[in-house]
Design a protein around this nucleic acid. Structure first.
Lengths: 210, 210
DNA sequence: TAGATTGTTAATCGATTAACAATC
DNA sequence: TAGATTGTTAATCGATTAACAATC
């Protein structure tokens, strides 16, 4: 897909939200919706919705609007919810365990296939039905199962080192929860740094400046 | 502070990252840094850094750059890390527990002072040294302790209802982890919707479109 | 003083919004 | 056909980058 890389990240970041709202409309048995109605629900402008959707093609019909079910499916395809990307979790502390059990990977084009933790007391136990393995098994596991995605729930001091190692084992994407801004020099590697602490700080800033 | 509300949210969202990087420089015993050096580290432009900082005042010195310790402290003050905002957690499931134990509230101007869960089996137990209470106690607790911030780790179906209730109990800010886009009609309420699932979807989108 | 680097204004770039012809 | 609403182009707005005078 040549076009895909040219989509601005502002648009991409809005796609999951469209997908969620359309899923909700589907649940409410709404068959069709106009950009105007959807804009009202999502607190956006109708213009923006039409612009965003037209990055990927004309999903609507003049005089009618958008078919909710079709549009939901189309956006799902764009996001790749029908894919099955193998994911491994590194670090099974409080946060790692919560991610493993709380995130619905299946509906997001992923499957959690392995969990690793250096703590020997955890190795052998399981979280959400998935056994926790020793990092020593990482190499053979990746060679066999070929996960493409790694979720990092480890201390910031080891993040860069482990990420570099994982790149060599074939990992193409990082969902990074460590308090460290991961950046990978290799080409064709994607990183999503999640900084929950930053999110809290922007909230308290706004709270203190009401 | 009249000025505070006029700061664009693009700038505000970058502040915690500046704060983190300056904290790291401080650890590395770096005394002074130029916008250019900092830009290189943070993968930003020097222009942007100077523009951002000058929203709040001239923290630098021509010909010298910025004093790391001073700038760190100034940004900390702007973000309000020296404040002590009372926070309550609603919902002590996997995610709630992880938030309670994993987030360092103290260094972010907050203090977690109460946890609530409707599950009777959880009431009376504690997480991170804080007792889990019944939602029945919510009203009296808020009247007494006056928390300003609520962290919502509850199912999406009950989010809006509970949030509206909490507004009436004096809550001014919501850190919302439920899979629901919370919006509050009342004035002077701030909401930060965290959608971890959306974050994963944008990552898989990019992964599938490399 | 000369060199370095800020603070700030001006230029550019990109994203959002408005407008409207196309068309269902 | 008439009305509604899209797809798309043009206008606006805001954010980022560049440039440079001020100044330490």
């Amino acid at each position: 897909m040549a076009k895909s890389n040219s989509i601005s990240s502002s648009v991409i970041k809005r796609l999951p939200r469209y997908y969620r709202f359309l899923g909700q409309l589907l649940k409410e048995d709404v068959v069709r919706i106009s950009s105007q109605e959807l804009a009202k629900r999502m607190k956006l402008t109708a213009s923006q919705i039409r612009q965003d959707l037209n990055c990927f093609g004309g999903f609507g019909q003049q005089g009618y609007g958008y078919n909710v079910s079709d549009l939901h499916e189309e956006i799902g395809k764009i996001l790749g919810v029908d894919k099955n990307v193998g994911a491994i979790l590194i670090g099974a502390g409080n946060l790692g365990k919560a991610i493993a059990t709380h995130i619905n990977f299946g509906t997001r084009g992923c499957e959690l296939i392995g969990i690793f933790d250096a703590d020997e007391k955890l190795v052998g136990t399981s979280v959400g039905g998935i056994a926790i393995r020793s990092p020593l098994e990482l190499e053979s596991f990746c060679a066999k199962e070929k996960p493409q995605l790694a979720i990092l729930c480890i201390p910031k001091t080891s993040t860069q080192e482990i990420a570099d190692k994982l790149v060599n084992l074939g990992i193409k994407g990082f969902w990074n929860y460590s308090h460290y801004d991961l950046s990978i020099e290799h080409e064709n590697i994607v990183v999503e740094n999640v900084h929950l602490g930053d999110s809290l700080l922007t909230l308290t800033y706004r709270l203190n400046n009401l």
